[in-house]
Design a protein around this nucleic acid. Structure first.
Lengths: 337, 337
DNA sequence: TCCTGTCGTGCAATCGATTGCGCGCAATCG
DNA sequence: CGATTGCGCGCAATCGATTGCACGACAGGA
């Protein structure tokens, strides 16, 4: 004979099943299961629930309570270790507090962003954490005022509360370092123009360089994606200039790694012939043949803080934007001119 | 005056709202919205729904239909690019078919695995894709027979349908390559013993080596984690043996990268003094100073196939385990003895 | 003219957990 | 011993979409 637990493909155990077995009404069971009381009757009901293998149906409870205890998270893509790390911070924080993160990839494509955001709202998430805001296609604007709080992380946008790295400061740290080493011809691999996090890094870099008497002209600032291949391509363009830079600021480490590969092929030694500063300090930056000087971005903390702020928003508490402090990590890929 | 769409924080628009505005019953609206008809009355109802900004409540629909069109995915961690890539394949495939993936990280910890699996079931996912099966703590066994189909990916387990790489073959390819280059003293950085994917690679490697007359003794097989630091530590142990190996098989690329760092520090040139074969072919393997010879694991395809097989299981169709063919990618980190 | 078949619509039940309301029982006090 | 307070429990409504059933209208054929 099969017990209820062993049989497969059977109907879900509901509160009513427990109630019947315990000889009480389902409302009594519901109350018993969430009371802290140690009343013997309550204990008996708990026992029956356990025996029958009852587990709460979060969908039914969510419908009734108008609260799913879940937050939707939109990221460009999870195979980017930067976004994966931010999400890990979010997921960890939420799950520790009994909440569920529901993540979707949008590939930075506005149409996908809109579609998947709508879908998340259909799943009645209680809030949205947006890590893929574009300043040319701010889909979050349509979502806001839908009754669901929206928090930005990683990239900011006017009118929204956000949790970001102080990207401008990060850019400044890179510029100060390179100018301090005596470099005066600075190239920038600038990333996607629609990502404010990246353009802020470039802005900070150029401003700090100029303040120290080094002008970074527009032709030394090359847009790119965030992949190693993009670092190679942008690097090629810059190295092939009549008067190529002696130092590079690459707005993300993956592209910087591509640039390092290009330099190697051209017989240039990073840190000796040419300097390179990356951004984020992803784990492999330290493992490279020539370890990468980079700006550490507190990605995990950013995710954790974003999750907490989102919970605060949902519970109706006031929240304000926060920026986290980046830090320069000097390694072997930079050296004196 | 605010329109319904502009006002914020307001109540959700329900079918009943649309029905009242259109002067019909909500059941009529429900039918109209999902019929393909171009009847003018149907068109009118659609128009009203659009105007009021109605969006389906997937929670309510899920409760009524006993089907959420979502699949829970359990992974060790998403910051591991291997798992992130597998998940990307799953997510992409599911979302293209109108399904939602809900992913959770379990850190390979049995207690977390159990807790989060239960939580996913509480969310009424229609199936589970398990990427973090441990052969010493098979939590999936408790979950199976809960009325929800379970599919394994990445790591297999007896009695479960799985989609995996042919890891044993991958190990064989590595061994054939190294023995073919004349190496007879082979070291193995073996990964976690509880992960069958990894131990299968080691088994295939040792079997193929033995078939070619090279015995890999137990003291040359060192357990590890999958991080670069673990590659360094395991490598240190092997290099400090009285008769150290001249070639290494490292069951995953991240650890192989750590081993390459160690070799560099010891003044050994990979591909010349010592050979190293990794596993997975993650993107950075090709970008290294000494590009890594490795066994390509079709991770994204694995995820996509797993998603499709899971959908098949859910729809009640028969499914069988599938293995995908790995491929040796020879680069500069291996060379003749 | 009446009957039958078809189509569209309204009604009400359903999914499972939660909760306000009210009833009945027991305990305590005057 | 009767009245009042308090507590526990059952009842039924609720959340929002879906769907079987039944009824009414209308058309076509006998």
């Amino acid at each position: 004979m099969m017990t209820a637990v062993e049989s497969s493909g059977r109907r879900r155990v509901t509160l009513d099943d427990v109630a019947q077995r315990a000889g009480v009404h389902k409302s009594t069971v519901s109350r018993a299961l969430r009371s802290a009381s140690s009343d013997p009757r309550v204990a008996r009901i708990r026992e029956v629930a356990e025996e029958l293998g009852w587990t709460p149906d979060l969908i039914a409870a969510g419908l009734r309570n108008q609260q799913m205890r879940s937050i939707g998270v939109l990221v460009p893509r999870l195979t980017d270790v930067v976004l994966a790390t931010i999400f890990e911070g979010i997921d960890d924080t939420l799950s520790q507090q009994g909440w569920q993160a529901v993540v979707v990839s949008t590939w930075d494509e506005p149409e996908v962003q809109r579609r998947r955001a709508r879908l998340l709202l259909g799943h009645r998430v209680d809030g949205l954490i947006v890590a893929d805001a574009r300043d040319d296609e701010p889909y979050m604007v349509d979502i806001a005022g839908r009754g669901v709080p929206v928090l930005l992380v990683n990239r900011s946008y006017p009118g929204f509360v956000s949790v970001t790295c102080d990207d401008e400061l990060g850019g400044r740290l890179a510029a100060e370092h390179l100018v301090g080493l005596g470099h005066t011809r600075l190239g920038v691999v600038a990333g996607m123009p629609y990502a404010v996090s990246l353009s802020n890094r470039v802005r900070g870099f150029r401003a700090a360089a100029r303040e120290r008497g080094v002008e970074v002209s527009d032709d030394l600032v090359v847009p790119s994606t965030i992949y190693p291949s993009a670092g190679r391509e942008a690097g090629t363009r810059l190295l092939d200039l009549p008067d190529p830079p002696t130092a590079f600021f690459v707005v993300n480490d993956a592209a910087a790694i591509g640039l390092l590969g290009l330099l190697r092929e051209r017989g240039l030694t990073p840190g000796v012939d040419v300097s390179v500063v990356g951004f984020n300090d992803i784990p492999e930056a330290a493992e490279l043949h020539v370890p990468l000087t980079t700006v550490r971005n507190p990605m995990r903390e950013m995710g954790a803080l974003a999750a907490n702020e989102a919970l605060r928003m949902i519970s109706g508490q006031p929240v304000t934007s926060r920026t986290l402090r980046p830090e320069l990590v000097v390694r072997a890929s930079t050296g004196p001119r």
